[in-house]
Design a protein around this nucleic acid. Structure first.
Lengths: 120, 120
DNA sequence: CAGAATCCATTCGGATACTG
DNA sequence: CAGTATCCGAATGGATTCTG
């Protein structure tokens, strides 16, 4: 929620712009840096509408509290949508929002590459 | 993407693997999830060979200890190289390794998008 | 200049147990 | 099934001080 009113623009002696340096990006990166966050986005993107247990299974071992938190945060950030069906037993499905999908597109090349690096 | 409601993503008894889900990726993501890590990669990629103080300046406010740690870790992970020149005053330059550059390519679309989201 | 070392507040995430 | 609540150890990152 760091909506900084003071934009730390290039207040320095910059008569020229520095080449795009993404240093000042703030809040969103903090969210994405939390554990499983990026994988979560990609997982939902890859699997499609997904239920809690499926996610839990996809990650070898996650504590439910952690996963739950991450899910909540991503829903609140509107990267994921949460649909709750009034059934018994209850069913909840998470899905990428439009924004989430865009994010996912940027995440996939990264994750793919990372995975590739590790499996060698 | 697999967002077609007509096509069930994961059928009941899947003897095959779910579509690429990057859940199990481990160590590298933990490194990248540390504070400033991704921005650091991109910053070095954008600015080129860069000195400690330049980096420090690029980020509004970072503690030297944190920045130093991150730099070390990225060097050790061989995403950055560290060249120390025997001069007075001492000069040190960080640069992307080949691996780091590949990583940077995957990071840039993400960071660019994130920045875009925040400045609107 | 480019850090290393130390100390510490905060946060994060896992384990466990419980609920609508 | 899909979480929530609580507790707690571990890790993170910032401030400060010092150095080759």
């Amino acid at each position: 929620m760091a909506n900084n009113p003071e934009i730390p623009a290039n207040t320095a002696d910059s008569t020229r712009d520095a080449p795009t340096c993404y240093c000042p990006v703030g809040g969103v990166m903090e969210l994405l840096s939390r554990r499983y966050a990026m994988q979560l986005i990609c997982a939902v993107g890859a699997i499609g509408p997904v239920r809690y247990n499926e996610v839990e299974g996809a990650f070898g071992d996650v504590s439910s509290s952690t996963l739950s938190s991450r899910l909540d945060e991503l829903v609140e950030a509107e990267y994921l949508s949460r649909e709750r069906y009034a059934e018994i037993p209850p069913r909840v499905e998470y899905e990428l929002t439009d924004t989430g999908e865009e994010l996912c597109h940027r995440l996939e090349p990264l994750l793919e590459w990372v995975e590739d690096q590790e499996t060698t």
